[in-house]
Computed example of a mutant assay.
Amino acid sequence: MAGFRFRLQKLLNLKQQLEDKAKNELGLAMKAHELEKRKLALLDAGIVRISDDFRQACSGTIRPERIQAIRTWLEVQKTAREQQLDAVKKSGENVDKVRVKLVAAMQEKKILANLRDKEFEKFLKQEAHNEQKLTDELVSYRESVKITAVGMEGQ
């Protein structure tokens, strides 16, 4: 009985490697996206804190220089937030792009894996057929030997 050998095994192995690489890229992209979202959350928390400081500065004793400094810092933080929103959007788009790449790699690998499975099933059927044929020949041979032996005893 010869062993099963898939003729496209090297290509299947390559597709598996590409899938694994895409999975790693997706993990890194998702990690980077989460980092950008955390940075945005920190900026949002800072803006809330600065806004509270601004409200406090505007109530009670009014010090115009302090109010102006807080207002300027608040504007800087809002600009940084807008930039961070863009960074979050870009990292999210990157995650989507890498995810599409991963899905394509998974589909290509799945096609080859299904082909391998079909060829293996065909191989098993052929082997079973060959074994049955061999068994039939052996039984036929034994029967012919018995008949010949019985025929020779009668002479």
Score class of each variant (00 low, 15 high):
E36A: 08
L14H: 13
R142Y: 09
R49G: 07
K10A: 14
A22Q: 08
C58D: 10
F6E: 02
A69C: 09
Q77M: 14
E119A: 05
K90L: 07
L12Y: 03
E65L: 06
D52K: 14
S140K: 11
M30G: 07
F54T: 00
I111V: 11
D96K: 06
R5S: 12
R49I: 06
A105C: 12
G3Y: 11
V76N: 06
E127A: 13
L8D: 14
A2V: 09
R116A: 11
S144V: 00
V76Q: 14
R99P: 01
C58L: 07
A57R: 02
M106P: 00
K109S: 01
G60K: 01
F123R: 01
E137F: 13
T148Q: 12
E25K: 15
L85D: 03
L102Q: 06
V98G: 01
R142D: 04
N130Y: 10
C58P: 02
E19Q: 13
L85A: 06
L35A: 14
L74M: 05
R55A: 04
M152Y: 10
Q68P: 05
E137H: 12
S51L: 08
K10M: 05
N24F: 04
E25F: 08
T148S: 12
K89W: 09
S91D: 03
K37C: 03
K78L: 02
A2C: 08
L11G: 00
V98N: 01
L26N: 04
D117I: 09
V103M: 15
H33P: 00
S51N: 11
M152D: 15
N130G: 06
L138S: 05
L40P: 03
L102S: 00
E25T: 11
N130R: 15
N114K: 08
Q68I: 05
L28Y: 10
K21P: 12
E93N: 07
K89V: 05
V145T: 04
F54G: 00
R142I: 07
L35F: 10
G92D: 03
A69T: 13
A113H: 12
A22T: 12
W73V: 09
T148L: 12
L115A: 04
A80Y: 01
V150H: 06
L8M: 04
Q16D: 09
Q56R: 12
K133Q: 03
W73L: 15
T72L: 11
L115T: 08
S140M: 05
K122L: 11
L12V: 06
A113C: 07
L42R: 11
N13T: 13
